[in-house]
Amino acid sequence: MRITYLFDGSMEGLLCAVFESFERKAKQVKVELLQHHQPDAFTESMQIHNDSKKAGRVWSALQKKLSPAWIRKFYCCFLSERPDAYTSLYEFCHYLFTHPAGAEDNYGNEHVLLIAQMARKVEREKHRMEAFIRFQESQDGLFYCGIDPDFNVLPLIMKHFKDRYASQRWLIYDINRNYGLFYDEVSVEEVHLDFETQKRLQKIPINAQASKEQLYAVLWKDYFKSTNIVARKNTKLHTQHVPKRYWKYLTEKQIDSFG
């Protein structure tokens, strides 16, 4: 009998789905997000209730079976928030628990391969955020950037920014997912802004910017222009490295009145 497990999009929910399927010896299970579910006449559905104990058991079993690098892949793949990624993670757990050790190296298996490839995409997006985020300094010394990454990469980039910008206050806000990371020179906190504030904060308005912010933006643009070698122009390569959807972040790509 076919059945669809509905979970809430959390890692805990996904792991509980794995737990339930083993406990019920269920076959032919599909995993779906609760909010995306469309009931159909021929499959039953069951809502998964989160239980940290059950999830914990699955997680520790995964940790026993997988190397830290693979755990990271698993987590990255989860952060992609893609329906096929959830399916593969679920199937991967089943595959892993029913096969002898080392099964995760079998790239001939479609779920293993999908997780590895999806994790790579997420890592790439994470790396791009580390590269393309451009802070603007506000009058009170806060460095701000609003982003809307393809995947939910904020948890992944936190450590990088915390280590690097240890001596300045910063805020990175995921505009689509509506949460952000705020660092106050001691620790990083997750923050949620109400809608109005959030709208205002997509870019810092000029009158709230630090006095030298405009100057450094212009200097950076100048630098970007003069470091280019016109004789070697290669637009295709350029857009391959900096896809156009990221240009909105980049200070050097904004047209301004200073020229």
Binding site: H127, E130, A131, F132, F224, T227, N228, I229, V230, R232, K233, N234, T235, K236, L237, H238, Q240, H241, V242, L250, E252
Partner: peptide, 13 residues
């Protein structure tokens, strides 16, 4: 390493 941007000739900056 991190390439923060690329020039129009495709070299990393």
């Amino acid at each position: 390493g991190i390439c923060h941007t690329y020039t129009e000739d495709g070299r990393c900056v």
